[in-house]
Design a protein around this nucleic acid. Structure first.
Lengths: 152, 152
DNA sequence: GCCACCTCCTTGACTCCTCAAGCATACCGC
DNA sequence: GCGGTATGCTTGAGGAGTCAAGGAGGTGGC
């Protein structure tokens, strides 16, 4: 069991814990998942709140079909629309609606709070976030028997 | 967009990339997923290679039903068996078989190589793994527009 | 101008996990 | 010892994503 492997496994473990926290808060307050939020956020960062679906997939680390399926509910509830390209009939754009942008602003507050809580719980020092194992041990709970002893 | 939120999203993004790499290598060479490997590894760390299923679930960050479903294929191919508790008929143990232990040893080599590659690609300094954002940016590719500039 | 090939997107079938429900068993108060 | 509650596990239904196949549209060689 190398240190690098240990770090990798802690990273995986940390992510599941983290996603659960975001999903809980975002779901309760805004009815969206972390994946939904991330997609909206990514769109909001693009010029015009508008991206080709294939580029959005790339940006989110999904496949094109993942985007098709993930965006469908957001289109149904009016946070995202679909636009076509005048020059190339193959491409479809995903576009953040004004409603989507408003709702995203609220979600952003929630998400900011959640992440602040996550990094506030143990004495996180933004400077000294420390080594990866220590980091992921604090973040991810008790997945594997302790490696680096967490600071007192 | 706070730094903590940025870090959280990078963590999520990094994990998907990392899992893909492990799954690819472990799947190709040993026919198992990273989740399978992690379960076997966790079992191997327990005394006698033996854990109550509910404790294994806890250790892996899954639900009990996740363990039932995930272990089923590993039982079918003989890497894990099921044992009962003489004192408490409710509990079932998951036990690593000798075959399972052998196969795990091979997987461990592969997994070690994969993690070494992941942490070797950019000049990872085990000491100075650095701040979380820099870490996850290097690890996770180009999910979000750059935050901390990666070292030259 | 047409044919082969490429790209963008969606769909069907599947995997992996969750939650909720259910069954079996253990434990506690009396 | 008996009823009520708590625990351990499995199962059905469903969500989120993958891959492979396929339709529709663009593009370049000749």
């Amino acid at each position: 069991m190398t240190d690098a492997l240990d770090a990798s496994l802690r990273l995986v473990r940390a992510q599941t814990a983290l996603v659960k926290r975001f999903d809980a808060s975002l779901g309760r307050l805004h009815g969206v998942s972390l994946a939904d939020f991330t997609a909206l956020l990514r769109l909001s960062l693009a010029p015009g709140g508008r991206m080709r679906r294939v580029d959005l997939a790339e940006a989110l680390g999904l496949t094109a079909s993942g985007v098709t399926r993930g965006l469908a509910p957001l289109e149904r509830i009016g946070l995202v629309t679909r636009e076509t390209d005048a020059r190339d009939a193959r491409v479809a754009y995903a576009v953040l609606t004004p409603t989507g942008r408003d709702r995203l602003a609220d979600m952003l507050i929630t998400a900011g709070q959640v992440s602040a809580e996550i990094f506030a719980a143990p004495p996180w020092d933004a400077q000294d976030i420390g080594t990866l194992s220590a980091l992921l041990t604090r973040l991810g709970g008790t997945g594997l028997p302790g490696h680096g002893t967490p600071p007192p």
